[in-house]
Nucleic acid binder design. Structure first.
Lengths: 145, 145
DNA sequence: TAAGATTGAGCCGTCAATCTTT
DNA sequence: AAAGATTGACGGCTCAATCTTA
């Protein structure tokens, strides 16, 4: 029956919710303990650096699976802190572009060692390499609609 | 090196964050579309019904991995809505017990068909039975400290 | 009319402080 | 002092409404 998940599915669901909550909690705690901003900030700055060009809020929204108004407020905070700047978009008068500042690049460099260590401690250390690959593959399937 | 996660670990981490955010978002949306309260309410009511007895806030906290103050406010909302009642704890004067009301039992019955269908649609349908079992097992490993 | 983006109001989670009982 | 639980203040997210430009 299409509407009745198997026990295995229900277990996977429950553990997805708990494991992600737990892992996000401990990684965020490690960042905070190091005096660093939350993960969401890193995500935005990393996308900007990866793009090697300014991004429109709309593009950030799509890459991070965030709602438009949340991106708007996240950029507010990043701009207030000096890690990004907003500039008018030349191609589309309605839009803007978000530019990574040098302070933003510097923050990325300071956050990565802490973030990397936290990922290894709370995820990598608990799985073999092949298990990590399998987990990534299965979670990837959940992202396909 | 202990602080350097493998590429497979980093991929698993990123997909854990995205897949859980995505799956939680769509399941919550299905509940909301059916005019039902959020998942957190279901979690608390289900623990109370499973226990077949009143639970202390402390016990709910442990089972759901929530912070104490969040449990306190979640119970506030559930009590205001009439799904649980707070009663003084006879064994420990500092504590309380949370009792499931008949309206709470009824809400569980109304939520489960919608919740079940959402889990199947957004998780079960995307994995084979053995994949679901593997995913559950791997996520379980992340919960062990 | 629709799309990109922002804003005000309200809800929920977080932090630190507090209260009561042990 | 410590544990169970709550509270006030505040930050972030969500909803609906709004503004500007296409």
């Amino acid at each position: 029956m299409a509407s009745n998940p198997s026990d295995a599915t229900v277990t996977a669901w429950i553990r997805l919710v708990r494991a992600s909550r737990h892992a996000l909690g401990v990684v965020e705690a490690d960042l905070k303990a190091a005096g660093l901003p939350p993960l969401g900030w890193y995500d935005v700055l990393l996308e900007l650096r990866r793009a090697e060009a300014p991004l429109r809020p709309l593009e950030i929204e799509g890459r991070l699976l965030l709602a438009q108004h949340n991106v708007s407020r996240l950029i507010d905070r990043l701009e207030t802190a000096g890690y990004v700047e907003r500039q008018p978009c030349e191609e589309d008068g309605r839009g803007q572009v978000v530019v990574l500042t040098s302070a933003g690049r510097d923050l990325l460099k300071r956050m990565w060692p802490v973030y990397r260590t936290a990922i290894q401690r709370h995820v990598g250390a608990k799985l073999s390499k092949s298990q990590a690959a399998t987990l990534g593959q299965l979670l990837g399937q959940l992202l396909i609609d």
